[in-house]
Amino acid sequence: MKYKEIQPSTALDPYIHSFWQLKGEENDRQWERIFPDGCPGLVINLGDTCVTDNGVVTMDFAKTYVVGTMTSFKDSFIEADTHLFGVCLKPGIFSNFYSYAPQNELTDKTVQLEQKYSFNIDKFIKNPLYYLNLFFTDRLQNRNDLLQSIISDIHQSNGQVSISEIAKKSFISIRRLERNFKTHIGITPKEYSNIVRFQNALSIIKNSGQDRSLLDIAIECGYYDHSHLTNEIKRKTGLVPSQL
């Protein structure tokens, strides 16, 4: 399997993490797993039919799909003729490009988009990067700066800031904050913070090797103990820490 990420144009950098491409190789025939990161996305299938969402969803050739914010892992079956091209949007950004549906209606789902929202397969194939940069630049609307500021605060704390503290700092009620998150991100601010905290712990585990105990990492990342961290990893990855 070959996977690569490509940066969008400078104008789109505040809104899009990356474009990505995944192509199967000759002997590929395996499930590939991705973990939740708080980001929604879009995928167009350029190859044979691809089974995703742990076997529940089938993506057909030339169709465009929206992938809602994930709260747990997803498996996709990769074969030799698999060819996917995707867009990883930044959290809370989907509504800057689409007036489609509240994000909480898409959480943990992969949904085929209607033709009017989809990528034009003929134009896409001619020059994917040129097409995507133009497609999203033309669709760009004003960004929700308050929401982006709150997201930034959550990331700066590695998911350990309290929701009440965020609401107080932003001069917004907790109820309104939760409503905004569900509408634009698909999950509550607490759930989003948990994903950010999990991703921070995951990064430390992968980069620490045997140098640090799981308990040390758990405490640093705001978990009660190593069991709390282990259970969170199981929920979000389907694996135990030693399998990461």
Rank of each mutant, 00 (worst) to 15 (best):
L12C: 02
D13Y: 09
P14W: 10
Y15F: 15
Y15E: 05
H17A: 07
F19L: 09
K23I: 08
N27Q: 06
N27F: 12
N27I: 03
R29W: 09
R33M: 11
P36F: 08
C39N: 12
V43I: 15
D48E: 14
D48Q: 12
N54P: 06
N54G: 07
T58E: 14
M59H: 03
K63H: 08
T64E: 02
Y65T: 10
M70P: 00
T71E: 04
S72D: 12
I78Q: 05
D81G: 07
V87T: 12
L89A: 01
L89I: 05
K90N: 04
K90R: 15
K90A: 02
N96M: 15
F97Y: 12
S99V: 14
Y100S: 11
A101C: 12
T107L: 00
T107V: 11
T107F: 00
D108P: 00
D108F: 04
K109C: 13
T110N: 10
Q115G: 06
Y117N: 10
K123C: 11
I125C: 03
I125V: 14
N127P: 11
N133L: 05
F135R: 05
F135S: 07
F136Q: 07
T137A: 08
T137V: 02
D138C: 10
R139E: 08
N142K: 15
N142Q: 14
R143H: 06
L146P: 05
Q148K: 10
S149A: 13
S152C: 04
S157A: 15
G159N: 04
E165I: 01
I166A: 01
K168P: 01
I172P: 06
R176T: 15
N180W: 02
F181L: 11
F181H: 09
T188V: 06
T188Q: 04
P189F: 00
K190W: 04
N194D: 13
N194P: 00
F198V: 03
F198H: 02
S203T: 13
S203F: 05
S203W: 01
K206A: 11
S208H: 03
G209S: 01
Y224W: 01
Y224R: 13
H226P: 00
E232T: 15
T237K: 06
L239Q: 15
V240N: 11
P241C: 07
P241Y: 07
Q243W: 03
L244A: 04
